[in-house]
C-alpha cells in the first residue's frame, strides 16, 4: 500500500435538512492513489458525504479542500472540472441513447472546453477513444445497444466509465455493486479497481459487502448516524466493537433479509 500526499480534506462537514441532521462534523482525509472503502447502514450519511464533496449538496458547515483549493459550495459541473468525479448508486444514464453515444457525449463534454455547434461529435477519433474506454470496462460488445435494454451490471460499468473519461484524480463510487447480481459483483469490482489502480487515481467507494471491502480497500471509514464512527486500516475498523455492533451487524441482518 503506497499513499502519497493528501488530496482531499473534509473538515467539520455537517448537513442538516430542517431538524434532520444527515451529517455531523465529518473529518476525512484522502491521500493520492488511496483506495478507501466506506461502510455504514442506510441513512448513515455515506451518500450525503459524496453529495457534499461533489457539489450536489452544499454543506451547512465545514470546508472541503481538494489539492489545496477550497471547493466547498461549488456546483457539480465546477467540481468535476477540478478532477473529482463520481458514479451513482442508481446509474445516471441517457435512457434513449446507445452505450457508444454515452461515451461520445462524455468525451465531448469532459474533453472539450466548449461543445461544438456544427462539428460532428461522432468522429473516427472520438469513436476510437470511446471504444477503447468501453473495452477497458469490458462492455464494448454492447456499444450499439440502447441503455434501457441493458442489464444493471453493464449500466453500472458504463456509469463508472463515463465518470472516468476526464481522468479524475479522485473518484467517488456510490455503491458500485448495488443492484448487480451477486455472482457479478466481484468481476465488476475487479474490472473497475483494475482501471482505477492503473490510472493512479484515489478512490472512495461505498460498499455493503464486507468481502469486497476487504478485497479492495486500503482503508475503511465507517459511518453511523451521520458521524464517522471509525477510520483506519481495514482489519482494525472491521474488528472495532462499535463498528461490529452498529454497522456490520446490520449488514449481516440485511443479507439475511434478502435471503
Amino acid at each position: 500500500m503506497s499513499t502519497g500526499n493528501t488530496i482531499l480534506e473534509a473538515k467539520g462537514l455537517s448537513k442538516s435538512f430542517g431538524a434532520v441532521t444527515a451529517a455531523k462534523d465529518i473529518n476525512i482525509l484522502v491521500h493520492e492513489g488511496e483506495i478507501v472503502g466506506v461502510i455504514g447502514s442506510n441513512g448513515a450519511g455515506k451518500t450525503t458525504f459524496i453529495n457534499m464533496v461533489t457539489g450536489y449538496l452544499k454543506p451547512t458547515t465545514g470546508t472541503i479542500t481538494f489539492r489545496g483549493s477550497d471547493i466547498t459550495g461549488l456546483l457539480p459541473r465546477q467540481v468535476v472540472r477540478t478532477g473529482v468525479c463520481r458514479s451513482f448508486q442508481v446509474s445516471q444514464l441517457f435512457r434513449e441513447l446507445t452505450v457508444l453515444e454515452h461515451m461520445l457525449i462524455a468525451i465531448g463534454m469532459m474533453r472539450a472546453h466548449r461543445l461544438s455547434w456544427l462539428a460532428p461529435l461522432h468522429t473516427p477519433e472520438h469513436e476510437r477513444h470511446a471504444r477503447e474506454m468501453l473495452a477497458r470496462y469490458t462492455i464494448e460488445q454492447h456499444a450499439g445497444a440502447v441503455v434501457s435494454t441493458l442489464p444493471q451490471g453493464v449500466r453500472k460499468l458504463l456509469d463508472i466509465a463515463m465518470a472516468t473519461v476526464a481522468e479524475p484524480a479522485l473518484l467517488l463510487l456510490d455503491e458500485p455493486t448495488s443492484g448487480v447480481a451477486i455472482e457479478e459483483k466481484f468481476p465488476l469490482m475487479q474490472t473497475v479497481m483494475g482501471q482505477i489502480v492503473a490510472s493512479k487515481a484515489a478512490c472512495l467507494f461505498v460498499e455493503h459487502d464486507m468481502e469486497i471491502v476487504e478485497g479492495y480497500a486500503h482503508r475503511v471509514i465507517a459511518f453511523y448516524e451521520g458521524r464517522v464512527l471509525a477510520d483506519g486500516p481495514v482489519k482494525d475498523v472491521l474488528a472495532n466493537d462499535e463498528v461490529r455492533k452498529y454497522v456490520i451487524g446490520s449488514e449481516i441482518h440485511r443479507e439475511k433479509e434478502k435471503a
Binding site: 463520481r86 469532459m110 462539428a119
Partner: peptide
C-alpha cells in the same frame, strides 16, 4: 449538421438526464 454535433447531442442528454449532464461539467 448541428443535431449531430456536441451541442446537438447535448440536447438529448439534457432531455434524458440533467444530473448526468451536470456531472459531465456542462450546465
Amino acid at each position: 449538421q448541428h443535431l449531430r454535433s456536441g451541442m446537438g447531442y447535448a440536447s438529448e442528454a439534457v432531455r434524458d438526464n440533467e444530473i448526468r449532464v451536470e456531472y459531465l461539467g456542462v450546465s
